[in-house]
Design a protein around this nucleic acid. Structure first.
Length: 555
RNA sequence: UGAGCUAUGGUGUAACGGUAGCACUACAGAUUUUGGUUCUGUCUGUCUAGGUUCGAAUCCUAGUAGCUCAACCA
């Protein structure tokens, strides 16, 4: 094989997780793998989760095995079935299928048994300290902590107290079950971590069955183990948890799942923290979790992003362990690339100026145009053309600069899929505002049958003034004015972009009346758009997904 | 000031001791009935200092910088 050919057929290099898995498969450690996507149902999924979803599900698509969807629902006061439903919808929409739908709460009985086992082994104890006392005894990263005075209770006493915690004999916060590890450990998480706490709260799945709930560290790894997850993939902030994860699995003598960490993906000009996103929603800076400006999956979906483009984005940014801030421009590139292939072309004029074809004597005519020049199978549609048309105000200049390809006095342009026209006269009102352009059209220049021999540089989009449909268009821009709002001084909300939404009126070709929310459009020379679900009969509302790249910037 | 993690163009990611590559961005040109698309080309990088080696982004040593850890959150 020649060098060239070899290079062509060579596979894309592996990321560090794929390397680990291929090694595990090669050595026979596993013959197939199990991963899981473990959201807490206390908020909506965002683009950062998409990265994790693509990773976990992508790995078991590439290698033998499967992925579970597991809800980490160990804190009943913040969790809700509303979130469960939205999460399932988002994962499906992204194009992935889970093997089993599981809940940490499915394992509450087993987990309780594990806790008893730990107590019996002398590795856990009931502590009566308040959370303030515990915090005071915990030490700091640079100073060791102190043992609780309850640390040396007997096994029987612990068993009894834990049973009474479970039976609801004690109020919230009065006692906890803690692992007995080492209060001087350099890893703060190993300083006798809390395993169970008392919460007399209604759980979205187990109802009022329990009044004690396991902490993350006593639920997550154990759930992985119960499901025999081979590769438990999480973000870097869980690195210190791994030591406890392994400690618990070893003492419990259960299936040894292993945790691997990658750096969460950050994107500039937005925030991806559930807490911050929730604030934007509750403070009404956006209209909801699915506001098209939100980096949530539901927001991106409503904005017009396709699942393919999001998957492509996640693939392109890859996965590693270093801090990062991905340029949102890459996300935009991915959606443009996909939409360019599938979007139906339409013409919409946003800030119209009237063109009157002084030599057009007909009653109007129907012209034909392609729906997508990238895809001949997209078919054609017809456009109504007549003596009075609307073009974009900034497609005309009275005193144009040298490389201006659009309309100007005496200058000619092509009207897309129609005729070449020449501007003869500019009509203005008392304020000097242009109100109409008198033009002549070249009859022999009809699109597809041009015998005029005239070559023009510019092609403009247009609509027929008589039957143009008025539509509302929501033009979205980045939510924040700064690259990394979380990094700035003060409240992140001070850095919101005041111009993140501009609502304008457009004049659309009539075929847009048939638009549905499933359609994707390119408004010629403008951008990609989709119909918003706020549309009602007779009032069409479009969201701008992303602008077209603009190769022409005025100096 | 303890422990852990991470350092490669503007951004993201490769190179597994042997020519620092790919993508995005930016810029230039060609094509174009979308100043879109497509095509071609160009610029920009191994945190620092020593060491090992014929040869170091890669191995060693010492620094430096960034991030993480003191919820009965996950």
């Amino acid at each position: 094989m020649s060098e060239e050919l070899k290079k062509d057929t060579e596979e894309r290099s592996l990321n560090f997780l794929e390397e680990i898995i291929e090694e595990d498969l090669r050595t026979g450690k596993y013959s197939s793998i199990v991963t899981r996507f473990p959201p807490e149902p206390n908020g909506y999924l965002h683009i950062g989760h998409a990265s994790s979803i693509c990773l976990n599900f992508g790995l078991t698509k590439k290698y033998p095995g499967y992925t579970n969807l597991r809800f980490d629902d160990t804190n009943p006061v913040t969790e809700d079935t509303e979130y469960v439903e939205s999460i399932k919808e988002d994962v499906k929409w992204l194009g992935f299928e889970w093997k089993h739908e599981r809940y940490a709460s499915d394992y509450f009985d087993t987990l309780h048994g594990y806790a008893v086992k730990l107590i019996e082994k002398g590795l856990a104890y009931v502590d009566d300290s308040t959370s303030e006392e515990m915090a005071a005894m915990k030490g700091t990263p640079t100073e060791p902590g102190r043992n609780s005075s309850f640390r040396d209770r007997t096994v029987d006493e612990n068993l009894d107290l834990f049973a009474r915690m479970k039976n609801g004999e004690f109020p919230d916060g009065s006692r906890t079950l803690r692992a007995k590890i080492d209060m001087a450990h350099t890893n703060m998480l190993m300083r006798d971590p809390v395993l169970y706490r008392i919460k007399h709260a209604h759980h979205h799945r187990t109802g009022d069955k329990w009044c004690i709930y396991p902490m993350y560290d006593f639920a997550h790894g154990q759930s992985d183990s119960i499901e025999e997850v081979t590769h438990s993939i999480c973000t870097m902030e869980f690195v210190p948890h791994r030591e406890l994860y392994d400690w618990l699995i070893a003492r419990l003598e259960i299936y040894p799942s292993h945790q691997y960490e990658f750096a969460r993906r950050n994107i500039n000009y937005t925030v991806t923290s559930k807490r911050k996103l929730l604030q934007l929603v509750t403070d009404n800076h956006v209209t909801g979790w699915d506001d098209p400006r939100m980096p949530t999956i539901s927001g991106l979906r409503r904005r017009g992003y396709t699942p393919d483009s999001i998957r492509d984005f996640c693939e392109r940014i890859g996965v590693a362990k270093r801090d990062n801030l991905v340029d949102v421009g890459l996300l935009e590139f991915c959606v443009r690339e996909h939409l360019n292939k599938i979007a139906q072309r339409r013409m919409v004029v946003f800030d119209p100026v009237k063109v009157i074809l002084t030599n057009y004597t007909g009653d109007g005519e129907l012209l034909s145009t392609e729906n997508n020049p990238e895809n001949p199978e997209g078919g054609i549609r017809s456009l109504s053309f007549n003596r009075e048309l609307l073009i974009e105000r900034d497609d005309f200049m009275e005193n144009p600069p040298k490389k201006y390809f659009r309309l100007a006095p005496g200058q000619m342009v092509r009207l897309k899929s129609a005729y070449i026209i020449r501007c003869d006269e500019v009509i203005k009102d008392g304020n000097g505002q242009v109100t109409a352009l008198h033009c002549t059209y070249i009859p022999e220049s009809k699109s597809g049958a041009d015998t005029s021999g005239i070559n023009v540089k510019g092609t403009l989009h247009w609509v027929n003034a008589a039957d143009a449909v008025e539509v509302e268009v929501r033009e979205y821009d980045r939510l924040f004015r700064v690259e990394n709002p979380a990094d700035e001084e003060g409240d992140f909300k001070e850095y919101l972009n005041p111009d993140s939404l501009k609502t304008v009126i457009g004049f659309a070709e009539t075929s847009l009346k048939e638009a549905t929310t499933a359609d994707r459009f390119q408004f010629l020379r403008k951008g990609y758009y989709c119909l918003d679900r706020d549309s009602k009969d007779g009032k069409l509302i479009f969201n701008r997904t992303v602008t077209l790249k603009d190769g022409w910037k005025k100096a």
